[in-house]
Structure formats: C-alpha cells, structure tokens
C-alpha cells in the first residue's frame, strides 16, 4: 500500500509533496497549473496533480467535473489552455509518440469500429504498437469471457468494454489510463477487473483510474484526487479519506445512556437518544468512543463501515 498523505482540500501540491513515492523518484504524472477552456466554459482550472510511479491513483468526480478533459490533455488529444504536463518524464505534445508507446488508454466513451471483429481490432492496434503477445491476448479473452470473433456491432456495451479492457491490459505498459473502466460491466467482471488492476500494480505499473464509481476506487486505489468543477478539491490516501468519512453509530445500553459524556465526545454529532438506545454520527477516530463505552454497560454496538461515498459528499459539502 502506498504511503498516504494528509487529506488537504484544495491544496493538492502540498498533499502530494507530503506523500512518499511508491516507486522511482520522478512522478508518473505531474500536472502543474493545468487549465482548459472551451470558449467561455472553463472545463479545468489551475489543476495541480502528482501521481507516483507504481501506485493506483483514483481520479474521482461526478460527470462534467473535468476528469476526461484532464485525461485527454495527458494524451495530447486536447491542447491545454495553460499549464504544464509531464507524463513518465515526457511532454505529451513534444514526445507524444514515445510517451504513447509506454502507456495504454481506455476511453470512457467507447466508440469502436462497428464492422470490425474484436480480434481484428486487437490485431490492428497490435500493428500500431509493434505487436501483441497472442497467448496473453487469449488468456485475457478467457478471463474476460470475451468472444474475439464477434463484430463490435454484435457486442453488448459490456462486451465492448471488455474489448477495451483487453486492449488496455494486453500491452506491457508502464502507465494505464482508464476512464470509467467498469461502466456496463457485470459484478463478476468488475471483480475480474480489480484482479487485473492488482496484478498490473504488482508488476509495477502505474494506474490512473478515473471513475465516479466510488466503491470501485475504494477497492482499487492507493490514493485519490477529488475533482469538482475543474478543480482538485482534495488529494489523499483512500484510508485517510475513509478515516475522514462519517460513521453511523448505533449503541444499546443496559442502563440509562451517559448523554452528557457523549455530548462532550469530540467528533460525535447528531446524537439522538431513544430510551436506552443512542444513534449518532462520528467523524474522526473511533478510539475515544470505544474508551467511553468500555466504562458503561453496553448490550450492543453497531458501527457502519465508513463509506468513501459519504466522505466524497462531505468533501463536496465542505468545498461548496
């Protein structure tokens, strides 16, 4: 697991500077002051981001937050209005060919040539990349339960997604850029995807995972950046984000609850007492609560698993 940085809303550079790189000194992705305007619309504004080599980096945000625009700038599909981008030590504009040789990209909005078979598309991309390992191709097709002989137009959206996943994981790339990779995949395939991500990470591959599916990022990523209206509002470790998340607490006492002590407990809010039952929301460490409860007769304690989604929503509330 990567070392995590303190979660600092809106100060991504500071956050990333505090984090120890997973592998190698220079970052896999370094974005400084990136801005991209579409006429009067500012899709991305003053975005700073650093992704360490060898980590799985979650890029979170709702639709329209600027995730895809940022990714398309990394690939030189879009030309930034301002800012500087370095990917694997290279400038995407100047060294685009050399850079794209070392990375693979899975687009979020998948539009694959309708009349081509999956095998035909893999072969075509293989010719552009200097060839693929056919054994690895077949192994991935089996794992993804994908029939390579079928035409794109005959494939469901989930199966098309599998074709794109196969292409992304087939090349032995140093960096995988995956934009909404599990859209349309069934739960079994989502698990397979997570296995592929873990295997790639174990090989030292850096994975930049853009998603609005929080549970997916929660399971896969070491660190996350949260994007809102084209700005990074927070960067940090997933564990840190989870710690920051609010937890629902449900305690049954075997005696009248210690309401005064509970009211003084740091981080415990929305306390509701129903006879001997206490419902509350806890943000921050749980240790003080456990110490308090240990001094009282407790029949049961229910603590809901902290959810990134809640932390994510909290961040948005804070940033708004």
């Amino acid at each position: 697991m990567a070392a995590t940085s303190p979660l600092e809303a809106g100060t991504s550079a500071a956050a990333t500077a505090a984090a120890a790189p997973v592998g190698g000194a220079d970052p896999a992705i370094l974005i400084e002051g990136l801005a991209k305007d579409y006429g009067p619309v500012q899709a991305v504004q003053a975005l700073d981001l650093e992704v360490h080599r060898g980590e799985v980096f979650g890029f979170l945000g709702p639709n329209g937050a600027g995730k895809t625009t940022t990714i398309r700038c990394l690939l030189d599909l879009l030309r930034p209005t301002a800012g500087r981008i370095t990917v694997l030590g290279l400038d995407p504009r100047r060294d685009g060919i050399a850079l794209r040789r070392r990375l693979t990209y899975m687009p979020g909005e998948l539009r694959l040539p309708e009349r081509m078979t999956a095998a035909g598309l893999v072969a075509a991309i293989g010719r552009l990349r200097g060839g693929f390992d056919t054994r690895r191709r077949d192994e991935l097709a089996t794992r993804l339960d994908l029939d390579l002989g079928r035409r794109m137009r005959d494939l469901s959206s989930g199966n098309r997604r599998k074709v794109a996943l196969l292409l992304a994981f087939l090349a032995d790339a140093e960096l995988l850029i995956l934009d909404e990779p599990t859209n349309g995949l069934d739960p079994l395939m989502q698990r397979e995807f997570l296995r592929l991500v873990r295997e790639a990470r174990a090989r030292g591959t850096t994975i930049f995972l853009s998603s609005h599916v929080l549970s997916e990022v929660q399971r896969a990523a070491d660190r996350v950046a949260v994007l809102r209206q084209g700005r990074v509002v927070a960067v940090g470790g997933v564990d840190e984000l989870r710690r920051r998340a609010r937890q629902r607490i449900d305690v049954w006492f075997d005696a009248p609850p210690p309401t005064e002590e509970l009211a003084r407990l740091p981080g415990l809010v929305d306390v509701a007492v129903e006879d001997r039952r206490v419902l509350a929301t806890l943000s921050g460490p749980i240790q003080p609560l456990l110490e308090l409860l240990a001094r009282h007769p407790v029949l049961s304690l229910l603590v809901e698993e902290p959810d990134l989604e809640q932390a994510f929503l909290d961040l948005y509330k804070d940033a708004a």
Partner: peptide, 15 residues
C-alpha cells in the same frame, strides 16, 4: 465525429 479516431490516436503514432 463518430469517436473512432480516439483509440488510434492514443497509440504510438503521430496525428
């Protein structure tokens, strides 16, 4: 317009 270029432009070839 159909989005078919993006996958090819993400490969090690120049525009």
């Amino acid at each position: 317009d159909a989005g078919h270029l993006e996958l090819f432009l993400a490969q090690p070839v120049s525009r």
